[in-house]
Every structure is written in C-alpha cells, then in structure tokens.
C-alpha cells in the first residue's frame, strides 16, 4: 500500500466521538462518551447489558442519533442530520439476530444492495456476491434460504452481505450472542480474518477470548460512561476500575 492510499484510508475509516450523550425517554443511556477508533484498528466494547455499548454502535452506524456531542465516522459528521444519511452503504453492521432477509436465498441476501443500491448488473452482482460468500466459507450454500441454515451459517452470510457493499468500517453488535456455543467459533474466526486484513472494526461482544486475541483496544463501559480502556492485556488481565474487576469476575466465573 502506498503512502497516499494509507493516508486516504486513515481519513476514510476512523471514528471520533466527542461528548456524546443519548437518552431514551427519562433514561440517560450515554453520558458524555469520548471515543476514538483509528483506521484499521479493532476496538472491542465490553460491559454489562444496559451499559450503553450497543447504543454507541448504533449511533456510529446511523441507526440512532446522538442527543448532543460530535460523531464523525469516516468523513461523515453524523451529528449533522443532513449529512448523516451519507454513511448508509459505507459501513457494515452485523446484528445479534442476523436480520437476514427470509424471502431471499443466501446469494439474494448478499446481492440485493449491489443490484438496487449500487446498480450493478445481475452478472456483476453475482460475481461479487459469490466472492463475498466464499470469503466467509458459504459459497456452497448460496442457494439456501436463511431458514435452511444454522445460526452460525446465517451469521456468516450476514457478514458476507455487509462486506459486499465494500464498507470502510464493520460494526458487530453481539454477533455471537444468539448462537449455540459450538457455533461461536466459525463466526469469530471470520471476524478474526477480517481484522487480520486490516478492516476497521468496532465489536460489542461477551466473548472475552475474542477480545483478548483480536482487539487492539478494549473499552469497558459502565452505566453510560467509559470506565476504563486500554490494551486487552491491561483491561482484561489487570483492570484498575472496581466495576471492571467486578464485571470480569462475573463473566469469567460463568
């Protein structure tokens, strides 16, 4: 990679959050969040449910709007309601419940946005789609409908679907939480290979093994604030904040 493309990428796929707040009704979910994700890095958000980590992800992907503060994703200022929609199609989101389109087969799921949004020809979309399915090891099941696939296979198709539009950043919202334990590995191994390829990733997960092996930085959230962040070694092995210690003790016990 040349110096210029590296620089372009660093502009296009970094994330900055400044003093971000968000309330749902009377519940203050996020209180003053500052967070930076550099291009090509993998940041893992951990914390108890209700701590606000999914909301951070949904704000970065444009599914929610912050009440105040600045959110810049790539080169899109998400706090500007006029410009926020520009992010659509440029970041990939992988959901806990997969959210595959049940009326389309695996290839149809992956190619829908290519055909309708990016206006690719049928042949071109098929080629890109098959390549993305191959990337997650699902090319043999391209004609299968979601209901004919296991949870792990569905999630891999969902990852392929997100990758197909060539996103600059990938978000994973508890991508393995709905899976049977023996199926978690096939999904995390796809995620690890994406990280190895230099994809910028923000991952909300309860998989401490994944966090430890893959994250560049682990961020612990508690009650709407970032309580602690640092390298996985630091946060997971030597947590400083009492809430982090409590949380990890509970998670590792389970």
């Amino acid at each position: 990679m040349t110096a210029t493309t590296a620089k372009e990428q660093s502009i296009a796929s970094s994330i900055q959050l400044r003093a971000v707040t968000k309330a749902f009704g009377s519940v203050q979910v996020l209180k003053n969040i500052d967070l930076d994700v550099a291009s090509g890095k993998v940041v893992v958000l951990i914390g108890a449910s209700g701590s606000g980590k999914s909301t951070v992800l949904r704000i970065m992907s444009g599914l929610e709007t912050a009440d105040s503060g600045e959110v810049v994703v790539g080169d899109v200022p998400m706090h500007d309601p006029k410009r926020a929609p520009e992010i659509r199609g440029h970041v990939g989101m992988v959901f806990q419940q997969f959210n595959l389109f049940p009326h389309l087969n695996a290839l149809g799921n992956v190619t829908l946005a290519l055909r309708k949004s990016l206006k690719m020809s049928k042949a071109e979309a098929r080629e890109v789609g098959l390549r993305c399915l191959e990337r997650v090891g699902m090319q043999d099941r391209c004609a299968n409908y979601p209901s004919q696939l296991s949870g792990g296979q569905q999630q891999r198709v969902a990852i392929a679907r997100a990758l197909a539009v060539n996103p600059r950043i990938m978000f994973f919202d508890e991508a393995t939480s709905a899976l049977d334990p023996e199926l978690v590995g096939e999904v995390t191994s796809v995620m690890r290979s994406l990280a190895a390829d230099g994809m910028t990733m923000v991952v909300v997960t309860h998989e401490m093994g994944f966090a430890h092996r893959t994250a560049d930085r682990v961020v612990f959230m508690d009650d709407g604030v970032i309580a602690e962040q640092g390298s996985p070694e630091q946060v997971l092995k030597d947590p400083q904040h009492p809430r982090t210690q409590q949380f990890l003790a509970r998670v590792l016990e389970a």
């Binding site: 992907s61 444009g62 599914l63 659509r88 199609g89 440029h90 970041v91 990939g92 989101m93 959901f95 419940q97 959210n99 595959l100 389109f101 829908l112 946005a113 309708k116 949004s117 990016l118 969902a158 679907r161 997100a162 539009v165």
Partner: peptide, 12 residues
C-alpha cells in the same frame, strides 16, 4: 431489524 439491515446496506 429487517429495515435496519436494509438501511445500513444503503437501500433507500
């Protein structure tokens, strides 16, 4: 979730 998935994929 179906609409959210479509939205992030860039469908209008």
């Amino acid at each position: 979730g179906q609409r959210e998935a479509a939205q992030t994929l860039g469908l209008s």
